[in-house]
Each structure stands twice: as C-alpha cells, then as structure tokens.
C-alpha cells in the first residue's frame, strides 16, 4: 500500500508527463521559436504541487522524457532522499517506493480511478498539443481530438495556452522558454471539475540531449514487485 503523500506524488507525476509531451506553452510576448521544432528528449528538475479538496502535497524532483512515450520521474523528500520513482513506457507503468523496497507495475489502464492516478490516462490527451500550423495563430478552436472527443484549444502566437475536455478537465500552459529553438512549457497547471489542481514548474530544462536507454529502465533488483491492482484504496 502507498501512503497519501505517495498517491499525490503520482498525481503530480501525471502532470509532469502532460507538460513534456505537449511541447507547448503560453507567453505574454511573441516567442521566437524555430518552425517545426519539437521536443524529442527533455530532462529537467521539477517542482510539483498538488492541491485537492482534502489534502495538499508539493515537492521537488527530476524527470526525463524521450519521445514518443518514455518517462522517468524521481520525486525527492526535503532531505534529498528518493520518495518515489515512476517509469512509463507506452501503456506500461512502474511505480517504485524505495523506502518500502516495493514496486507496482502494470498497464496504465489498470490504475485505480481514485487518488489522481487516472491522470495518467489524461496524459495521452495532453500529448496531443502540437503548436498551430499557423506560426502566429491566436484564438480558440474546437476540434476532434485524437482520443475521440471534441476539445477546445486556445492558441497564442501559435502555441497552445489551454485545453479543455468535455468532462471538465483543463490544462493551462502559462509560460515557456525557447531552448535551442524549441518551445518548452515550464509551467503547467491542470484542473479538474472538482477544482483539484496540479502545478508543475520545470527548472533548467535541457532539450534534445542524448539520453541512455538505462535511464528509462527500472532497476528492480531486491524489490518486491506487485501488480498495480494492489494499489487498492486509492
């Protein structure tokens, strides 16, 4: 079993992935990014904040991403030790809790509905957030998203500033930096219909650097490995 803090960490993790897959952001001024520049890999320190109706959690961590669907996130305690690691590869996800020498692994679809874990499913929705074909496009459009529902997407200067889904989920991209010509969101906030909020801030992101395969492979030697279904009670 994982504790409430760990559960919230998982929720925060969802948003990490949302950001990195999106490759989009909003800005108060025109952003001079390279046309068709996209994020292939990203590594960054991250600050996470999760606020739900009954609890809050925040922390620091580090994450790496490699296109199209590989993520490794480390959530750190205030004293610098590892609270949790999450590895995602496509629909496969592994959550590691070093203090308990326990890992949970399985398909994203097996994640419980509670505790924010369903946010991982949202990840794919947010991944579908490429900049507009019109370099300086502005305004809101309704479109059929790749996940099969109508979504509202707002652009500023060709970059997505927010998305909303019919079920009330929203994602806001509030700021970005251009790194090597690539626009990268550094602040993202996701809200759901209950006004649960998850904020993520990247610090000193690096884009499109080479990442070793080992970074995305969980080291489970000595760990008790349990199925995701054992995450009951979330």
């Amino acid at each position: 079993m994982i504790n409430p803090k760990q559960k919230l960490s998982v929720l925060a993790l969802c948003i990490v992935s949302l950001l990195i897959f999106s490759g989009c952001a909003t800005t108060s001024g025109t952003v001079d990014y390279r046309p068709n520049a996209v994020v292939e890999t990203l590594s960054s320190a991250v600050a996470l904040s999760v606020q739900t109706s009954d609890r809050g959690m925040s922390g620091q961590g580090y994450m790496v991403f490699r296109k199209p669907d590989q993520v490794h996130l480390v959530v750190l305690s205030p004293f610098g030790t590892t609270i949790m690691e999450v590895f995602a590869l496509g629909k496969q996800i592994t959550l590691i809790f070093p203090s308990k020498a326990t890992a949970y692994t399985g398909s994203i679809d097996e994640l419980p509905d509670g505790g924010g874990l369903q946010g991982w499913r949202m990840m794919r929705w947010v991944m579908d957030a490429d900049p507009s074909n019109e370099r300086h496009g502005n305004g809101t459009v309704e479109r059929m998203g790749k996940l099969g529902f109508i979504e509202k997407v707002t652009y500023a200067d060709g970059l997505i500033t927010s998305k909303s889904a019919p079920n009330g989920d929203q994602v806001f991209y509030e700021k970005y930096e251009v790194i090597g010509g690539v626009p990268v969101a550094v602040k993202v906030e996701m809200r759901n219909i209950r006004d649960d909020r998850v904020r993520l801030t990247l610090n000193e992101p690096e884009v499109n650097t080479a990442l070793e395969d080992a970074v995305f492979i969980p080291q489970l030697e000595g760990f008790t490995i349990l199925p995701l279904s054992d995450l009951k009670g979330l």
Partner: peptide, 15 residues
C-alpha cells in the same frame, strides 16, 4: 548546501 546526485541521470541538483 544540499546536493542531490542522481546516478542514472548524471545530473546534480543543488539547493
């Protein structure tokens, strides 16, 4: 000064 060295990611976070 707190430094966190992440072995796999070959990066140090300094606080």
């Amino acid at each position: 000064v707190q430094e966190k060295r992440l072995s796999l990611m070959k990066r140090t976070m300094t606080m």
